[in-house]
Design a protein around this nucleic acid. Structure first.
Lengths: 331, 331
DNA sequence: GTGAAAGCGCTAACAT
DNA sequence: ATGTTAGCGCTTTCAC
């Protein structure tokens, strides 16, 4: 294995000069700089990550907890993960992936000094991990927004605003009764942060706009079709729906079509999903895009600011925007 | 920060005794063992991962390259990743996630001694990374099977056998012309290992069984529907299809239904996908399951064998099995 | 059954 | 502008 000492010898300089030449923390003459660069290239030298981490007390690794819990949107998770990895790389960081959904992995990574910071996904409104995370000395960013962030940094799409936006959009179009077909029961049951916030924005905006609403969990299976029937059985006057369930989406649209309810003329539909997912639908539907990768990148950016500038924990919510995709305008 | 020296002091033993007590590489008296355990618990000691790695020359981290390339099945990728992480954890390893699709991340991780081994996904038949991977001193496992593995370990589902199984199954049922509706063009164009192998097994078995076949790339969008029309335009006598494209699957089935071709009575369908995905279909379809998580676990197992026992690079292909899900049997 | 001490390869004072 | 050196926190020879 080639060490920094080998490079120093080959370049006829001291070890520290090589170190400083690499970090740029000291001014090195043009000439020595080049001799060192040549030595590094010729020897194929790679600094030993652990040695560097031990001496510098920083690993250039960010821990990312991305548990694949039942009912989550795989596309969204995957894109957020990709975003975090991409963003982190842009700042010179790598990702240690933690897939268990408890605190053990976080504990191992943080307390074992494996990572410089943590990014935590699938946050619940009253998340069990918050206490532990708050007690850490390392920066920590939640992808989500718990009821009480307790001084932790939070990054997410603004699901509450998205709920409001949908209702206001429908209200403007003259709809008087709107339904939210959302996440699977299991996701709602554990009070996943995004689901809670979407529901809140949706119902609050409805109260303000004088629009009648109902909220319906949707399984991510063909059984979702039945929810459509349930909606109209309970509220025959529903004329618009906000759908937030990537996997159920095609089944819901198919069921509407089977019932002879044309989208968007008879039933206005707004899908809350990543643009990629919207493009895989047979029927073009207006959407509120979930910018999943952007969320991940933003999380990495916040981590970076906290690490490099000691920035205080901030809360960053990406505002929703509506994208028209359907042919005809709603009723 | 609590160090091993603190523990040693608290337990009234030497540093090395603490180290040996933790690793179990030396016999420690019952009494000292307990004193040390108590000190560790009381102080909340966590060994410093980098210090340990530097001294032991092993990080207990496995690098996992999981690029999210266009056209790949997100569910499958995610499940394999979960499997690798789960399997690795079972052996005391964590995962460093690399999402770029070139060799730079692999290089950084391996040459920088960040990882003890590598697992590489999305392997192509003539993969560019093979040369570099073969030159490494660390164990490396491919998830996939290139044309020439060149001494590297390979783990995957046996897509070739799956192609054969499908054809033989259809032939047994009396079908004389079968179509393979597969991965998107982009996946085939880069000769992704699994797509190549599936096609080979499919066409070879067909030649042997005297069954006529055709192979059709499928976009992962609603446009996939057109492929169904193309298939029957080119070969009106097609009575069975093997579908290997998770995202296209619903659109293909829907198009068949629109054309009035009943599944499985008029057109026998075999879907090649994870069981989870099959369960999200509106029409139950017979499947050949892709045991995605199992593949990941197997990859982690092979890595473990190579690391711990110095096992030679092996090739492990998980055989396909057919699962009946549709109501009626085929023609 | 236990200690002492020499590294592991690097960073960052403290030198000049 | 460059060199010397004391650690970083652990593992693992030696030594008893």
């Amino acid at each position: 294995m080639v060490t920094i000492a080998d490079v120093a010898e080959a370049a006829n300089v001291s070890i520290s000069t090589v170190s400083y030449a690499m970090s740029g923390k000291r001014k090195i003459s043009r000439e020595t700089q080049e001799r060192i660069a040549r030595a590094i290239a010729e020897l194929g030298y790679r600094p030993h990550a652990s040695a560097r981490a031990l001496a510098s007390r920083s690993t250039s690794i960010i821990g990312l907890q991305a548990p694949l819990r039942p009912g989550v949107d795989v596309h969204v998770v995957m894109e957020v993960v990709t975003g975090v990895a991409t963003g982190a790389r842009g700042h010179g960081y790598d990702i240690l992936l933690l897939t268990s959904d408890d605190s053990t992995g976080l504990e191992r990574a943080a307390s074992g000094s494996m990572v410089d910071a943590l990014v935590v996904m699938d946050v619940e409104s009253d998340d069990q991990r918050l206490g532990f995370l708050g007690s850490l000395d390392r920066p920590c960013v939640l992808v989500g927004l718990p009821a009480d962030p307790g001084g932790l940094a939070c990054v997410d799409f603004d699901f509450e605003a998205a709920g409001r936006l949908a209702v206001e959009h429908f209200a403007e179009q003259g709809h008087r009764r709107v339904a939210l077909l959302g996440s699977p029961q299991e996701v709602l049951a554990r009070h996943t942060s995004y689901a809670d916030r979407l529901t809140r924005g949706f119902t609050e905006a409805a109260a303000e706009a004088g629009v009648e609403v109902s909220v319906h969990p949707c399984p991510s299976t063909p059984d979702a079709s039945e929810v459509v029937d349930d909606v109209f059985a309970a509220h025959p006057d529903v004329t618009a729906m906000l759908i937030h369930n990537e996997e159920a989406l095609p089944h819901l649209l198919a069921r509407l079509s089977e019932r002879g309810q044309r989208v968007p003329d008879e039933v206005a539909v707004l899908a809350l999903c990543p643009p990629n997912v919207a493009r895989t639908l047979r029927i073009p539907v207006d959407t509120i895009d979930i910018p999943a990768e952007e969320i991940g990148i933003a999380a990495a950016d916040v981590v970076w600011e906290m690490i490099s500038e000691g920035a205080p924990p901030s809360i960053r919510l990406i505002p929703p925007t509506l994208t028209a995709r359907s042919a005809a305008p709603g009723a």
